[in-house]
């Protein structure tokens, strides 16, 4: 949508109309989480151009049902672009993108996004931010309230229900972002450098909490980061993206058993070699400008 706005042809009103069009070809409901194998992500030969330059070229990527995959890559390599295409917020120019076997043509109801800059509405309290997508989707009021309160409690913000985002620190804001995604009970969660905007200590705390949350809820997750440590800590598999154009240059399984903690991952024998390998891949892809 940014593109469209920047090209200056469409107002937000028209964009809403376009969204309606996307929804007309709505996907059939995804099978329940217990169904197995139905909320996998698959990208095949995906291309994306901005103007004359390919931002993403011939990208193949798959995430299995209930798998946690981290994508690492230098900044500007197209990570956000990839996530926006998966989220149905940007179109891809060729290739196929499916989630649970359904081609992505717009935001899917089974997918929740956690945004780098939190994406909270400043005029809504924590509670209302979390409850909004459920209310919009027509979840009954009591049910929405119960789920919102539960999610807010899960991220440790029980006391902040009635606060506005401006009253929260960066770490707390992203907890709200996580709570909003959780409360939607998605089958797939897409996270775009969710912890990049918070300080290092908070970041580790949030990683720890995310490990805990994910071990309980186990959705299919695609987590974008440019931190190698973060990727190893969280992921079952790390996908390394190269730059110019964006493509997958390595795909590494993280053989560290769960449950994990930030500390236990650091102590693990495969941590250092993994880190070395990813670092090496990233170093060789970073071409001088």
């Amino acid at each position: 949508m940014l593109t469209v706005l920047e090209r200056g042809q469409t107002g937000v009103g028209e964009l809403m109309a376009m969204e309606g069009a996307a929804r007309a070809v709505e996907a059939p409901p995804l099978a329940g989480r217990a169904g197995g194998g139905r909320s996998d992500i698959s990208c095949r030969g995906v291309y994306k151009w901005y103007g004359d330059s390919a931002v993403i070229a011939n990208l193949d990527l798959s995430v299995a049902h209930n798998e946690f995959v981290c994508v690492v890559g230098p900044s500007g390599c197209g990570k956000t672009t990839l996530l926006r295409m998966l989220a149905g917020l940007a179109e891809h120019d060729s290739g196929s993108i499916t989630i649970g076997g359904v081609p992505v043509t717009g935001p899917l109801p089974s997918v929740a996004v956690v945004f780098q800059h939190f994406g909270l509405f400043p005029w809504k309290t924590v509670f209302n931010n979390v409850a909004l997508p459920m209310r919009a989707a027509g979840v009954a009021k009591d049910e929405a309230r119960r789920r919102a309160e539960e999610a807010i409690a899960l991220v440790g913000l029980r006391d902040s229900n009635d606060k506005y985002p401006a009253q929260l620190s960066g770490g707390m804001k992203q907890r709200v972002g996580l709570a909003r995604a959780l409360a939607m009970q998605p089958e797939v969660v897409l996270l775009d450098e969710p912890f990049a905007a918070v300080d290092a200590q908070t970041r580790e705390i949030l990683q720890e909490e995310l490990l805990g949350l994910w071990s309980r809820y186990k959705q299919t997750a695609l987590f974008i980061t440019h931190s190698i440590d973060e990727a190893i800590t969280l992921a079952d598999r790390v996908v390394v993206m190269g730059t110019r154009p964006g493509r997958v240059i390595d795909d590494i399984v993280v053989p560290i058993e769960r449950p994990r903690s930030v500390a236990s991952v650091r102590r693990h024998e495969s941590y250092a070699p993994l880190r070395e390998r990813i670092w090496e891949r990233l170093r060789t892809t970073a071409q001088p400008k």
Binding site: M1, E19, G106, P107, F115, G119, F121, W123, P133, A136
Partner: peptide, 30 residues
């Protein structure tokens, strides 16, 4: 209205707000 954060508009799309909900929850309060 023009300066309402493009990112927030994207968030509303991602949360699947329909046209009326986008006016009520995003454009008008913004």
């Amino acid at each position: 209205v023009r300066q309402i954060d493009a990112e927030l508009m994207e968030v509303s799309r991602s949360l699947r707000l329909n046209r009326r909900q986008t006016w009520v929850h995003v454009l008008l309060p913004g």
